[in-house]
Deep mutational scan, measured.
Amino acid sequence: MQIFVKTLTGKTITLEVEPSDTIENVKAKIQDKEGIPPDQQRLIFAGKQLEDGRTLSDYNIQKESTSHLVLR
């Protein structure tokens, strides 16, 4: 499924993911596309910070959901 990640600069990154993917996996995909190390990434969805060990389905992130990327 596709999800979108919006950066603070207003850029939207499109990612191909599975509901069973962990947040860690998603951060690795963002690193592949954008070159941002996962330890600098914070992903926010529905006002919550997403934890590495959880999956997209844990957070009820469905296709075409948009989460926000904040850099630390």
Results as ranks from 00 to 15, higher is better:
Gln41Asp: 01
Tyr59Leu: 06
Ile36Phe: 09
Lys27Gln: 02
Gln62Pro: 10
Ser65Val: 08
Asp58His: 08
Ile23Val: 09
Ile61Gln: 02
Gln31Ala: 14
Gln40Ser: 09
Gln62Met: 12
Glu16Asn: 10
Tyr59Phe: 04
Asp32Leu: 14
Lys6His: 15
Val5Gly: 01
Asp21Ala: 07
Lys33Pro: 02
Ala46Met: 14
Gly35Arg: 05
Asn25Tyr: 11
Lys63Tyr: 10
Thr9Lys: 11
Gln2Trp: 10
Thr55Cys: 07
Lys63Phe: 11
Ile23Thr: 04
Phe45His: 12
Val70Ala: 06
Gln40His: 13
Asp32Val: 13
Gln49Lys: 10
Gly35Trp: 03
Glu51Thr: 06
Pro37Leu: 06
Lys33Leu: 14
Ala28Lys: 14
Ser57His: 09
Leu50Gln: 01
Ser67His: 12
Gln62Glu: 12
Lys48Phe: 09
Leu15Asn: 00
Glu18Gln: 13
Gln2Val: 15
His68Lys: 07
Leu71His: 06
Gly47Lys: 04
Lys48Glu: 12
Pro19Ser: 08
Glu24His: 10
Thr12Ser: 07
Lys6Phe: 07
Pro19Glu: 08
Thr22Gly: 03
Ile30Met: 02
Leu71Gln: 08
Gly10Ile: 02
Phe45Tyr: 13
Val5Met: 03
Glu51Cys: 11
Glu18Gly: 07
Glu18Asp: 12
Glu34Leu: 15
Gln41Leu: 06
Asp39Tyr: 12
Asn60Trp: 04
Leu69Thr: 02
Lys29Glu: 02
Asn25Trp: 09
Ile13His: 03
Glu24Asn: 07
Ile3Cys: 02
Phe45Arg: 03
Thr14Gln: 09
Ile36Ser: 03
Ile44Phe: 15
Ser57Phe: 09
Gln40Tyr: 08
Glu64Ala: 11
Thr22Cys: 04
Pro37Tyr: 05
Leu8His: 14
Ser67Leu: 15
Leu8Val: 13
Val70Ile: 14
Gly10Cys: 10
Gln49Ala: 11
Glu51Gln: 10
Gln62Thr: 15
Asp21Pro: 00
Leu56Pro: 01
Gln31Tyr: 15
Thr7Lys: 04
Leu15Ala: 01
Lys29Val: 04
Glu51Asp: 09
Gly10Pro: 02
Gln40Phe: 08
Ser20Met: 11
Thr55Ser: 08
Met1Trp: 12
Ala46Glu: 15
Glu34Asn: 08
Glu16Lys: 08
Ile36Lys: 02
Ile61Tyr: 03
Leu56Ala: 01
Gly10Val: 02
Ser67Gly: 15
Pro38Thr: 14
Asp32Thr: 11
Ile61His: 02
Ile44His: 09
Arg42Lys: 12
Thr22Ala: 04
Asp32Pro: 02
Ile44Cys: 15
Ser20Tyr: 11
Asn25Leu: 12
Lys27Glu: 00
Ala46Ile: 06
Glu16Leu: 13
Leu43Cys: 01
Leu15Cys: 02
Thr12Ile: 15
Ile44Asn: 05
Ile3Pro: 00
Asn25His: 13
Ile23Ala: 02
Ser20Val: 05
Glu34Ile: 15
Ile23Gln: 01
Glu16Asp: 12
Gly10Lys: 04
Tyr59Asn: 02
Thr14Cys: 13
Glu64Arg: 08
Leu15Glu: 00
Asp58Met: 04
Pro19His: 06
Phe4Arg: 10
Leu15Pro: 00
His68Thr: 12
Thr14Tyr: 08
Asp39Thr: 10
Met1Lys: 03
Gly35Ile: 02
Lys6Ser: 07
Met1Glu: 02
Lys11Asp: 07
Gln49Phe: 13
Thr55Gln: 06
Lys27Pro: 00
Lys48Tyr: 09
Tyr59His: 03
Thr9Phe: 13
Ile36Cys: 05
Arg54Val: 05
Gln62Ala: 10
Thr14Val: 14
Lys33Ser: 11
Ile36Asp: 02
Leu56Met: 04
Ser57Tyr: 09
Val17Asn: 00
Thr14Glu: 08
Asp32Ile: 13
Thr55Pro: 05
Pro38Gly: 07
Lys29His: 04
Val17Ser: 02
Lys33Ile: 14
Tyr59Glu: 03
Leu8Trp: 15
Lys29Gly: 03
Ile13Gln: 01
Phe4Gln: 09
Asn60Ser: 08
Ser67Val: 15
Ile13Asn: 00
Pro37Gly: 04
Ser65Ala: 09
Gly47Pro: 01
Ile23Met: 03
Gln31Lys: 10
Thr22Tyr: 07
Asp39Lys: 11
Val26Cys: 03
Leu50Ala: 03
Val17Tyr: 03
Arg72Leu: 15
Pro37Ala: 08
Ile61Asn: 02
